[in-house]
């Protein structure tokens, strides 16, 4: 009986030693020598693997950061400025501070403003509907409402509003990783400067058709009349291809443009309600 026990112990121990030896040799043979800074940099990155940096994941981006001589062009849209500063410190390189950005959906074509003209019954993907035709409404640039942007968001920062059929960005959660911007087949979503108290003023339309046509399909379309351009005291608004665009970096949030828009295509968000009298408005950057 004791023989059996001894044999089993000996044979198992031998097996164990053998396995350990093989593992050790293989580990030595296939050892990859890595820059230890990659791990340090990776720790500072958000670890969401969102692809916002155009690399397959945070680790790959960390490697890229360590390898590159000049890292000022490399940017993780999700990481905070402190994170990036820490990375710059680890690597001993310079990095520019970036403006915080937030995704903005530039379409306000709710069913009320933009009536349905047909019923879409294909696979529920914006990109498929977009390649098929103009969409359920008549607007060739408007939101298709099938949620490609929602599906790509890694941060749960964008969701569909059941009533309006349009995506809504939750500013606090949005990291400006650019995923939804890329996913939208109609380029409706734009990364814009994040202002105090998440205030924003933007032209909520990207339709470049002639005013009449655009208006026919959507009551809140930009018709390219140019009144906002004239109104803007900071030359922040440009008009191109029948479409006005407010430059978020030039805009000082004076709110002068929104009231003059005949189609209410300019949206003001998170501002205090306007007072009835117009004259009280419009101290530059006057949200105090």
């Amino acid at each position: 009986m004791s023989d059996v026990i001894v044999y089993s112990i000996v044979s198992l121990s031998l097996l164990g030693v053998l396995a350990a030896l093989i593992l050790y040799i293989i580990a030595q043979k296939f050892k990859v020598i890595e820059d230890p800074r990659i791990d340090l940099v990776e720790q500072e990155l958000p670890g969401a693997n969102c692809g916002g940096c155009a690399m397959p994941g945070c680790r790959a981006f960390a490697e890229q950061l360590v390898k590159a001589d000049d890292i000022s062009d490399l940017n993780c849209p999700v990481a905070t400025n402190e994170n990036m500063a820490a990375i710059a410190k680890i690597l001993g390189k310079e990095i520019a501070e970036k403006e915080p950005l937030v995704a903005v959906v530039r379409c306000n074509g709710t069913p009320e403003f933009r009536p349905k003209t047909n019923h879409y019954d294909g696979a529920s993907e914006c990109s498929i509907a977009h390649s098929l035709y103009v969409g359920e409404s008549g607007c060739p640039s408007g939101c298709l409402g099938l949620g490609d942007c929602v599906r790509v968001c890694n941060f749960d920062a964008i969701h569909m509003d059941e009533k309006t059929g349009l995506p809504v960005v939750i500013d606090d959660k949005c990291t400006a990783c650019n995923a939804c911007v890329v996913a939208c087949p109609r380029d409706i979503i734009e990364l814009r400067k994040k202002n105090k108290k998440d205030r924003k003023i933007f032209v909520s339309c990207i339709n470049e058709e002639k005013g009449g046509v655009a208006r026919k399909n959507c009551k809140v379309a930009c018709i390219g009349c140019g009144r906002c351009v004239k109104e803007c005291p900071f030359e922040a608004i440009t008009l191109e291809n029948n479409l006005a665009y407010i430059d978020p970096f030039k805009c000082r949030l004076c709110r002068k443009c929104a009231p003059v828009c005949p189609t209410n295509a300019i949206l003001e968000i998170n501002f205090p309600p306007r007072k009835e009298k117009k004259e009280k408005e419009g101290t530059p950057a006057g949200e105090k």
Binding site: G122, A123, E125, S127, I128, S131
Partner: peptide
């Protein structure tokens, strides 16, 4: 399944 819808997407 909308097989062709997705294949078209893949093709493009």
């Amino acid at each position: 399944l909308p097989l062709l819808d997705y294949i078209r997407l893949g093709k493009s």
